[in-house]
């Protein structure tokens, strides 16, 4: 599905399909501090019904937001569909190798906003994985569901279709779910 690694733009349909296809997400570099962007992402993705596994080598065995923190990807006892990388580009190749060694293998490698590593992306794609770089899954989910529009953000999505509602007040889902 993904284009060549030089591709820096992803269509809304591609991003939406990825976020609809995964259920479990490991967030590598998840912070336990409640003011850090990675903490926000763990919380948001958990609220949207994903099984989120925070990965942080310094805090293995602790809990954040009721989720057990694992020191490495290999420690996670359940299959991981997507690895979301919240570390600097220099850490990306090692994390990709760890992901490729998992059984079963994840389907998606996702690098956060500002993070890009073309060689590691090529390696993951050669192994059959889908790669997204330089995007935030919280922003993308918020954009495609319409939630981010409540904050006056330009979602760049025009639609005359009914937004998808999730249970409770002020919770929207991805179109097509």
């Amino acid at each position: 599905m993904a284009g060549p690694v030089s591709q820096r733009t992803y269509s809304d349909a591609e991003i939406s399909a990825i976020l609809r296809s995964v259920r479990s997400i490991a967030v590598v570099g998840a912070s336990l501090k409640d003011v850090r962007p990675s903490y926000f992402v763990v919380r948001y993705l958990t609220d949207k019904g994903y099984d989120v596994f925070p990965i942080n080598p310094g805090h293995g065995g602790e809990t954040v937001l009721g989720r057990k923190v694992y020191a490495t990807l290999a420690d996670v006892p359940e299959p991981i569909d997507m690895v979301d990388i919240f570390r600097g580009p220099e850490h990306v190749p090692g994390i990709v190798e760890e992901a490729l060694a998992l059984v079963p293998r994840p389907k998606v490698i996702w690098m956060q906003l500002g993070i890009r590593h073309d060689d590691a992306a090529a390696r993951a794609e050669a192994a059959g994985l889908t790669v997204v770089m330089n995007r935030c899954p919280k922003i993308e989910y918020g954009r495609l569901s319409g939630e981010i529009s409540w904050s006056g953000v330009n979602s760049r999505v025009l639609s005359s279709k009914k937004p998808v509602l999730r249970p409770g007040f002020q919770h929207r889902g991805l179109p097509g779910t």
Partner: peptide, 14 residues
């Protein structure tokens, strides 16, 4: 919890 996440700017919403 929802209220806290909105006040803490962790969730989108009114």
């Amino acid at each position: 919890e929802h209220a806290a996440s909105l006040f803490g700017l962790q969730a989108f919403g009114n």
